[in-house]
Amino acid sequence: MGTESEEQPHGAAVVADGFGLEGPRGWVFRKVFFRAEPGALVAIEGPSGSGRTCLLLALTGRMKATEGHAEVGGLPLPRKMAAVRRISALGQVPGVNELDPAFTVAEHLHERALLQHRFDGSVRALLRRPGTRAAEARARIEEAVAAAGLDLDALPKGGRTSVRDLERLEALRLSIALALIGRPRLLAVDDTDLKLSDAARAEVWTLLRSLTASGTTVLAVCSEAPEDALRITTVAGPAEETADPAVSETPGAPEAPGAPGAPETPETSDRPKATDPEDAAEAPRADTDTDAGTTASTTEEGAADALAETGRS
């Protein structure tokens, strides 16, 4: 097991081939094609309500796609959703894993470290002496906080600062630190540029680039992607058959197989309310060179229905 992880790159390659999610009344997103190497920065760009968060959740194994397929670290979606969840982590996604405003920063970090140790640790780790486990938890927290650029000493009350008292940028850094405690191969961050000044947005992208430099693959939802990111563009509103597809746009990036993909469709209130659907063992796996088909119309109601159906097992 250890040998296998050493042979693999830390980051997870992500491939989408005609990836789509349909609800009873319309498409949430459809015909998404792109290929990202391990350690890539992938920006899911589009306006609020264009399916950005749903695509983020589907690519991290939290929502079940209904068309095409994707692979994360060689694990096929939607057939291996649980396995993808084990190698990926979410930053804060409202309605899914929000920060508790009553908790302090230190309480959030300590709780996440305990959960990580309890559910992801080996049997041997669970049998270690309490002092050793506590030291390991502190080391993980310090590593994650440093990687996220969260300066606890600069907070009003240090680690005892309540989440409700954090600035937007500080809260975003905390959510990233919490995700990094699990040392994921794929990190997904929602609303990277929401309610941030231009200077703060630049700080966020610098942070995400530093994470990719260390080998972690990053998926980031945003309204405007930086030029050096692998850009996946989503489109709000009903899709027309002649509309531009959702495609990857990055200098030097390989073109998507079959070239075209269709625009993605709206989310409802931009947020799902639950996660972790059951894996679909019977889901077919598409070939990597599937051609794009005709684009269907999409609706806000379709996104809502898809979220309701796939959100809770």
Rank of each mutant, 00 (worst) to 15 (best):
L126C: 09
R133S: 04
R168T: 15
A283N: 02
I87P: 08
P226W: 01
R118V: 05
I87G: 05
T288I: 11
T290E: 14
P38K: 00
L155G: 07
S122T: 14
R85W: 02
R312M: 10
T290F: 08
I181N: 00
G49Q: 05
T298M: 09
D165W: 09
R209H: 08
A36Y: 07
P156E: 14
D193T: 02
T242L: 11
A102H: 11
R312N: 12
G149E: 06
A306W: 04
S197N: 05
F119W: 14
T288L: 14
T242M: 08
P284Q: 08
P263E: 05
M1C: 12
R52Y: 09
T299D: 06
A135Q: 11
L219K: 04
E309V: 12
T250K: 13
P130E: 01
A179R: 04
A199E: 15
V42R: 04
A253Q: 10
T268S: 13
G23I: 02
V15E: 15
A229M: 00
W205M: 11
D198Q: 13
L59H: 03
K273G: 15
L55W: 01
T288P: 09
R231E: 10
G51S: 09
E300G: 07
A154R: 06
F119Q: 11
P38N: 01
V14T: 06
E136K: 07
T192I: 08
A113T: 01
P263Q: 02
L150R: 07
C54K: 01
T161C: 05
F34S: 03
D17V: 12
H108G: 02
F103D: 07
T66P: 07
H69C: 14
L41I: 06
Q8I: 08
R160A: 15
L115N: 07
P257I: 06
W205F: 14
G258D: 06
M63W: 10
A274K: 09
D291Q: 14
L150M: 09
N97G: 02
V96P: 10
A306S: 06
I141R: 01
D120R: 15
G302C: 05
G39Y: 03
S269V: 11
R183H: 08
G258V: 03
V247A: 15
F34D: 04
